[in-house]
Structure formats: C-alpha cells, structure tokens
Design a protein around this nucleic acid. Structure first.
Lengths: 177, 177
DNA sequence: TAACAGATATATCTGGTAGATAGGGGGAGT
DNA sequence: ACTCCCCCTATCTACCAGATATATCTGTTA
C-alpha cells in the first residue's frame, strides 16, 4: 500500500476557509485544529509548492496569500472521502508505566499526578473552546463541536484513569510516599 | 533541543524481559505493547546494531539472541526516568469530521458508525487482555494492568462520544438517512 | 523423498514527518 | 537611524513506518 501524505488534506482544508500565506496556514492548523492535528513548516511549504504546480492552489502574485482553485476544491473533497489512515500508537507515558517496577513506584506516582493535571487543564481548555465556537453559529459549527466533544470525552477519561491508577498504586504493597 | 530516539527505550525494555532476536523484539512489542506502542524493522535493526556497538546489548555468537548487559540495564533505567515526549496529534477521523459539511452528512454518519464499532471491538479486546494478564500474578502485573485500564477508559470514552455524535447529527436539520 | 506453505529472521530503501535553524522584510518604539 | 519583534519563507537533519528482498527452517502433503 502506498503511504499517502496527510499534509495535503490539512493544507487544502485550511485554505478552504480563506486564502492564507504558508505561515498563516500553520497558525490556523495550530490554533483551530491543534487539539487533533499538527503540521510543521517543513511539510507545509513543499506541499504548497506542489499544490501550486498541480493547479490546486494559486497566488495572484508572489506576495499574495495562497487561495484554493476549483480543482483544489475538488481535490479536497476527494481526499476527505478517502478512508482515514490511523497513525500507529506511540505513548511514552504508557511505555514508562509498563516498565514501572524498574522505574520505581514513586516516579510512577509522579507521572500519574502529571497526567491528571494535564487532563484537568485540557478539560478546562475544551470547555472554553466549546463556548467560543458555540457563540458564532455557522453551518460548520456542529461539526467543529463534534471534534471538541471528542476532546472532552478523552480528557475526562484520562482524568478518571489517572485517579483510578493513583488509587491502585496506593493499594500496592511497597514504599509508600 | 536534541530529539531522542524513542526506539532505544522500547527495544531495551523488551530485552529486559528476556534475550531475543530482532524479529522477536518486534513480535513482543506488537503483541505485548501493541495497544500503546509500535516499532518497525526499519527502526529495530539499526537500533540493535547501535546498542551492540555501545555495549548495552550483546550476542554470544552471530546466531544467538541479543541480551541486555549491565550497562544496558543502567541505560534502560536512565531512559525510563527521562520525561516522556508526547507525539504531536494526528487524527484523520477528526480532520474529516471537522470539514464534515464538505464531506456530507451521510459520510460523517458512516465514519461515526465505524468509530463506534471500532471502540466496541477494542473494549472487548481489552477485557480479554485484562483477564489474561491478571491470571498470572508477577511483580510487573499491576503496572501492565495500569496500561490496560487506560485502554479501557479510552475505548469507553470513544464509544460514548460516537453515540453522542450520532445523536447530534440526527438532530441536525438536513438530509436524514 | 520431493515439493510446498508458512513461520522465522535479517536487512535495506523510499518517502512521510517533526523540529531546529537561518534569514529577509517591515512596523513600532527609542 | 537603530533595534527589537513579529511575520514570512525556506532548508536540513534525524526520526520513523511500511514495503520489499532474501534466505533459512520446519512441518505437511503428495
């Protein structure tokens, strides 16, 4: 199976909202899609160049922002319809907890405390984000709320897991804090 | 900041359980850490060669499995103590749902159905895994159960989110199925 | 016994990807 | 004029996944 570049879809999607420079594409992806997607300059600029060569994206002049062409709009729809390829898991926290006996019980507790705090902070972020997005009702709003809801569910799950796990570690025989 | 190879930690961790060939390392990572970690041959073989050169890993002869040396054991502990670097998010499902209006409501519903089924299947997997791991009690078992619990929490959250989202889409004005 | 299938094992290549780095240009304040 | 500080465009290195090539070993079937 051929590996497909996922950057193309994200860049076309960003430009479907409004014309932007490469820099602004990166900002938009970080600020708007940041909780489930990320792109780096090293990907964005070559992708924009390739898209321009294929006519999916255009710049009135060298200094103007990139804008989607009709063919780019079509390309976006095609890519959206392709099945989402899932990225292989790589969770450094779990890797450390799995070898927790060798890391030590105290260090594991510290990791879990951090995970709990992270989840709490994230949950608060999503709550604020939900309010901001819900405030301005557009045809796209319901779909954006779907992705925010996913973040909330995930953060709440992480929070509950961290609490459970701290309790489980406390019940373990061994050096208590 | 220097980027650290995360493969090194995973390979040393696998070899800390028992001596293995490169092929077996890959199998162990897939079968035991598979729900939160993955490695490819393209990473494992060069990493093993580098670890051997640094003396962290040894092979009695060319055909024997790799085994951890004392310095490798130390290296493993050092890497475990390093803070886990989180991988940037890249969720193709969310990317598609975010641009759901352009994808179409029916296609979004199909994606959510698939997500719900995936979550259900995963949850069943974790339940089976928990039973298998809990059956044999070793000093490492409680830590393995922590990572399984994380999977269960995440899968349950994904399930609930998919149900919620399907309901939200149904409540949306537009082409109903 | 020969042929075959399938698992084990090692290695390499291509191309996607992250993160660091470098530097040009323009506006704001001093 | 000077010099920050953004905005903006790149480029490079290292990391990484997945496909592929190749060879050996083992058990099964003809």
């Amino acid at each position: 199976m051929v590996r497909r570049s996922q950057t193309e879809l994200a860049v076309l999607g960003a430009l479907s909202v409004q014309p932007m420079t490469g820099y602004a594409v990166r900002e938009a992806i970080r600020d708007v899609l940041g909780h489930f997607w990320s792109e780096s300059f090293g990907q964005i600029y070559p992708t924009l160049a390739a898209l321009e060569e294929q006519g999916h994206v255009r710049r009135p002049d060298r200094a103007a922002p990139y804008e989607l062409t009709a063919s780019g709009q079509r390309r976006l729809r095609d890519l959206l319809a392709e099945p989402a390829q899932k990225t292989p898991p790589r969770n450094g926290l779990m890797l450390r907890l799995f070898f927790g006996r060798q890391l030590g019980q105290a260090a594991c507790r510290a990791l879990l405390h951090q995970a709990r705090d992270d989840a709490e902070r994230q949950l608060a972020e999503y709550t604020g984000l939900r309010a901001a997005v819900a405030a301005e009702a557009t045809p796209d709003t319901p779909y954006a709320l779907l992705t925010i809801s996913a973040g909330e569910h995930t953060a709440r799950a992480a929070l509950a897991w961290a609490e459970d796990s701290l309790a489980a570690l406390d019940a373990l025989p061994g050096d208590q804090p």
